[in-house]
Simulated assay, not measured.
Amino acid sequence: MPHRSRLAGFIIDCNTDDLDAAADFWSQALGCSIADRDAGDETAEYQMFGDTPGDLHIEVQKVSHPSRVHLDIEADDVDAEAERLEKLGAKKIAFVKRWWVMEAPTGQRFCVVKMKHPERGAPANTWEVL
């Protein structure tokens, strides 16, 4: 059965004790508003941006690892997309709650997450299962 996926957006991982200040900086740098300062849950601290270019999902996340930016790919079938990407050379690093953390053949980390709003944004690519 085919599945669909597309670029969802990116997460700005910040190794900081002041996530509000980090979100303020990045929202102003990118020209976006802060739509939700409490977008996280009991296990993660996030702040979600609004008014993003191309309706991309952009968040600032408090992390314990070094600061970096990572992409999110959203899919209507997270496992099928992770398998497709493995066939292209990516590696699964960990399944966290409901998404895959993966690593590209060139070393960049990214996540495969569940598609939230299939009707919004750019059309998703359709992939046939091989």
Rank of each mutant, 00 (worst) to 15 (best):
M1C: 02
R4P: 00
R4C: 11
S5Q: 10
S5L: 15
S5I: 05
R6I: 04
R6V: 06
R6K: 15
F10D: 03
I11E: 12
I12Q: 04
I12Y: 05
I12L: 13
I12A: 08
I12C: 04
C14F: 06
C14D: 00
N15G: 00
N15C: 14
D17G: 14
L19I: 15
L19Y: 06
D20G: 10
D20A: 14
A21P: 03
A21C: 02
A21L: 11
A23M: 05
D24P: 00
D24L: 06
D24Q: 12
F25W: 09
F25R: 08
W26A: 01
S27K: 05
S27I: 02
Q28L: 09
L30H: 03
L30G: 06
G31W: 05
G31E: 02
G31A: 04
I34S: 07
I34W: 00
A35M: 03
A35E: 14
D36H: 04
R37I: 01
R37T: 05
R37H: 08
A39I: 04
A39L: 06
G40Y: 01
D41K: 05
T43L: 08
A44I: 13
Y46C: 04
Q47R: 15
T52S: 04
P53Q: 09
G54M: 07
D55R: 07
H57A: 09
I58K: 06
I58P: 07
E59Y: 03
E59K: 04
V60D: 01
V60Y: 01
V60P: 00
Q61L: 12
Q61E: 10
Q61Y: 05
K62F: 01
V63Y: 03
V63L: 02
S64K: 11
P66T: 05
R68E: 13
R68Q: 13
V69P: 00
V69I: 14
H70D: 04
H70Y: 00
L71Y: 07
D72W: 06
D72K: 03
D72C: 12
D72I: 04
D72S: 02
D72Y: 07
I73S: 06
I73P: 00
A75G: 08
D76H: 08
D76T: 10
V78M: 01
V78Q: 07
D79L: 07
D79V: 07
A80S: 12
A80T: 04
A82T: 13
E83H: 12
E83P: 04
L85V: 03
E86M: 14
K87N: 12
L88V: 09
L88A: 13
G89T: 03
K91G: 08
K92C: 08
I93V: 15
I93C: 09
F95H: 11
F95T: 11
V96K: 11
K97V: 15
R98F: 11
R98Q: 11
R98E: 14
V101M: 11
M102D: 08
E103Q: 15
E103L: 01
A104L: 09
T106E: 08
F110Y: 15
F110M: 07
F110L: 07
C111L: 07
C111Y: 08
V113Q: 03
K114E: 15
K114N: 13
M115D: 12
M115I: 12
H117F: 11
H117R: 13
H117E: 14
P118E: 07
E119I: 06
R120F: 06
G121C: 07
A122Q: 13
A122T: 13
P123W: 02
A124K: 05
N125A: 14
N125S: 10
T126W: 05
T126G: 06
W127N: 10
E128D: 12
L130M: 01
L130V: 12
